[in-house]
Design a binder for these strands. Structure first.
Lengths: 336, 336
DNA sequence: TCAAAAGTGTTATCCTTACACCCATGT
DNA sequence: ACATGGGTGTAAGGATAACACTTTTGA
């Protein structure tokens, strides 16, 4: 069966993209590059820059593994050295509903999460790359100062409308999907359900299905709104890169709880408050100070350096990550 | 940059393989197919059947998504209907250290975990497919009756020997890998470290690196043992399928704790003891009866049917899964 | 002396873990 | 009556979540 001529075989390209995360002044940043995607027919893309994640085509004859290829792409495109790297998911439907041109190679895209230790030399970034706050792409994910207002002013009204559309629901129930109202409750914590900060991807996918993110329109799905009345539902990205970013955010938020990954994003020495703010910035929610400190205390993940910080107000003790915990304990993390 | 002639582009095949799990009399079974892999030069493969997972080549022009393709492959090759399906990982180095023939297409393989509700019609399986107990492939993973004897009689002695090999360790420390002794402790719970039943893949990968599984030898790595003194370190599989199975086992064991996936493997009505045995069978360890029952009780995952089972001994109450919990609670599972 | 931030003490509650005993049925 | 498996009660210990208050510095 593998004797068929090569021409008859499917032509597949594998695209690797990384969500490279760092922290800048306790704000989570994501590495983006200016996209190669052409503007649409109306020339609307020119109005607003379309970003994409650093990415590249996987050539197995050049790179032994996927991860090696990924590291090369990021170094080449942004001069960043990656620390922690983790594979997220492989999407087989990058074009989604968009018409595929005849004869074009099909693209399968593999998403990665990577962490890098702060913007050491911001000037070292090439002009086509930069870091951008990740909440620009997902404004509804930032609950550090309580429930974001835009949820009640723009998002939920539009989503409830979507959930009440009986006609649209018909087709979905045929393929055993959960009713829209229930998915809405589970993803966005409507009707007293709790908000789960890890469900970043589920929320984005639901917005995509509802036609409320621009990528859905670009992919040829029916737009839920007229062009002039779109509220800010987060900046779009090229290809399926915002979906990959959503996967990365959700995964990182989860990982935080059982692996000491925050420390990849911290400087050598840091105060406990800075650590707390970093965790809050990533998980997008506010934490109880005393409980957080006690937690850090008895997980024994850090040790005092003996030095003091030089902030205004009372000086704080500086700590460093005890890297030997990686060797002793099975699953060290900050349970929250 | 995408104007290059097709011939210059890398030729990649995507292989999709599924670890299809079911329970047969409270023993976890895995769906395997007779492999198409040729026997080695010495004809040794003829002595022992080499199994592979149901799998197939992904053709994007025929299947809209990866998951759809997967379901078709499994139905075609084994007549099984899949319930729960989850993507595991994409391996870019299927051939690993083995020499790749010139001109051969490079294979990237995507592994899936799938659950199916019991062998409804065992005779419906084609002669090339069957279910096999998964502990045949990973004998060291079954701790239901305490620590498996083979760990102390064969595995640990060989592994300690590997860990004490100073020369081999040099190259690894160069690329920032953890010392062998520490990895051994973390994966296999040596020196009082606890055994973590979820680390199935980590253990398999370590055995592969140590040259103690037959796939490593097949892939051209130095064998750790002479041909005639191999103890039973689990049955090998074709390609990287045992690695995919290891990933699946680890993932399922983890998922069990925060999603109600066991019920995909249970019949409509079941006793609490049967449920406990099923969980034990998957997680590979013994559970405390009373605590397990209390857990099931206050997660409210099941409800009594009112009927009784017809075992010998005292008849047991039958329960069914309350499928509405999927709609109400965010993360229902059996914490263990 | 006051603002700003660091740092501590205590309690109620729930969940986990471990313990040992009684019950209903078929042979 | 006894073997076989079903089914409960209870108490110690630890983790969690909530509460408010004191301390140290720079301006």
């Amino acid at each position: 069966m593998s004797q068929t001529a090569p021409q008859a075989q499917p032509l597949i390209d594998i695209d690797i993209a990384a969500a490279v995360v760092t922290l800048d002044h306790e704000s989570p940043q994501i590495l983006v590059a200016r996209s190669a995607e052409p503007p649409d027919q109306q020339g609307h893309a020119a109005e607003q820059v379309l970003w994409s994640l650093p990415s590249g085509r996987f050539d197995p004859s050049r790179y032994r593994t996927l991860e090696i290829a990924l590291r090369v792409f990021v170094t080449d495109q942004a001069g960043c050295d990656l620390g922690y790297v983790e594979q997220l998911y492989t999407f087989g439907d990058r074009g989604r509903a968009a018409d595929e041109e005849e004869g074009r190679r099909h693209v399968v895209s593999i998403g990665y999460l990577a962490l890098t230790g702060g913007i050491t030399t911001p000037s070292a970034l090439p002009p086509t790359a930069r870091f951008r706050p990740w909440y620009r792409f997902f404004p509804w994910e930032d609950w550090r100062n309580g429930r974001p207002a835009m949820l009640d002013t723009s998002l939920m009204p539009l989503l409830t409308q979507w959930a009440e559309d009986r006609a649209g629901e018909q087709a979905e129930s045929a393929r055993r999907a959960l009713p829209r109202a229930i998915r809405l409750r589970q993803c966005f914590g409507a009707d007293g359900s709790p908000w789960d900060e890890e469900k970043v991807l589920e929320r984005y996918e639901l917005l995509y299905e509802a036609g409320l993110v621009q990528e859905a329109v670009r992919d040829g799905r029916p737009a839920a709104l007229a062009r002039n009345q779109w509220p800010n539902l987060g900046e779009p990205m090229s290809f399926d890169h915002r979906r990959i970013l959503a996967t990365a955010m959700g995964r990182l938020r989860g990982k935080l709880k059982y692996r000491p990954v925050v420390f990849e994003l911290m400087p050598e020495a840091f105060t406990l408050t800075a650590l707390q703010h970093s965790v809050e910035a990533i998980s997008g929610r506010h934490l109880h100070k005393q409980n957080f400190r006690r937690l850090v205390e008895n997980t024994a993940l850090v040790e005092p350096t003996g030095k003091q910080s030089l902030t205004r107000g009372r000086p704080a003790a500086l700590f460093r990550f005890r890297s030997d915990v990686l060797q002793e304990r099975p699953a060290p993390g900050l349970r929250l």
